[in-house]
Computed example of a mutant assay.
Amino acid sequence: MTLRWSTLDTDAVPAWAELTNLLAKVDRTEEYYDAEDLAEELSEPGFDPELDSVAVWDGDTLVAYSQLRVSLALTYEGTARAMIGGGVHPDWRGQGIATRMFDEMEPRGRELATERHPGEPFELRASGGLEDDPARPLLSERGYEIVRYFTAMQRPLPGDPLPEVTDPRVGPVTPELAEPLRLAHNDAFASHWGSAPQEPEQWANGMEARSLRIATSRAAVADGEVLSYVITGQWVDRELYISIVGTRPSARGQGLARQVLTASLAAAAATGEYDLVELDVDSVSPTGAGRLYESVGFTPVRTTATFAKADGAS
Rank of each mutant, 00 (worst) to 15 (best):
M83N: 07
A98C: 09
D91W: 12
E40P: 03
S43A: 15
E120S: 12
P121F: 11
L38E: 05
Y76I: 14
A98H: 01
V13Q: 04
W16K: 03
N21Q: 15
V63A: 09
P118E: 11
A64C: 13
L112E: 01
A73E: 10
E31S: 14
D27H: 06
M105F: 09
D27S: 07
E77A: 15
G119S: 15
A35K: 01
V13R: 03
E36F: 11
R69G: 09
G85H: 09
S43C: 14
A98Y: 01
R110S: 10
M101K: 01
G109L: 01
T99M: 06
V26L: 10
L72G: 11
T20P: 03
H89I: 12
L19R: 08
V26G: 08
E44C: 04
W16M: 05
A24Q: 04
E50R: 12
L51T: 07
W92F: 15
L62I: 15
L74S: 06
M105A: 08
R116I: 00
Q67H: 13
D58S: 13
L74W: 03
E30C: 09
D103K: 13
I97R: 01
E111G: 04
A80K: 01
E115P: 02
W57N: 13
V88H: 07
S53K: 06
G109N: 02
A64Q: 07
V70D: 00
R110T: 07
R28K: 13
D27K: 05
P118N: 13
D58C: 08
H117F: 14
P121R: 10
Q67A: 11
G109I: 00
P118T: 14
L112Q: 02
A24H: 05
H117R: 12
F47E: 01
G96M: 07
V13T: 07
V13E: 04
A39Y: 03
D91C: 12
I84E: 00
T99G: 08
G85R: 09
G109V: 02
V13H: 10
Y65R: 08
R100T: 07
L19V: 11
D52T: 01
G59H: 13
S66G: 13
D60N: 09
G85E: 07
P45N: 08
T61W: 05
E104H: 05
D37Y: 14
D27N: 08
G87T: 08
S66E: 06
G46I: 00
D60T: 10
G46W: 01
E115K: 08
E77F: 10
L72C: 06
H117N: 11
T99P: 03
G94I: 12
A73D: 09
L51G: 08
A15N: 08
P118D: 10
A15H: 10
Y65W: 13
E120Q: 15
V56F: 06
D27L: 07
D52R: 00
W92P: 04
E36C: 12
L22R: 15
D37P: 11
Y32D: 06
E77Y: 13
A80C: 06
A55E: 03
Y33M: 15
E30K: 05
R108H: 10
G94Y: 13
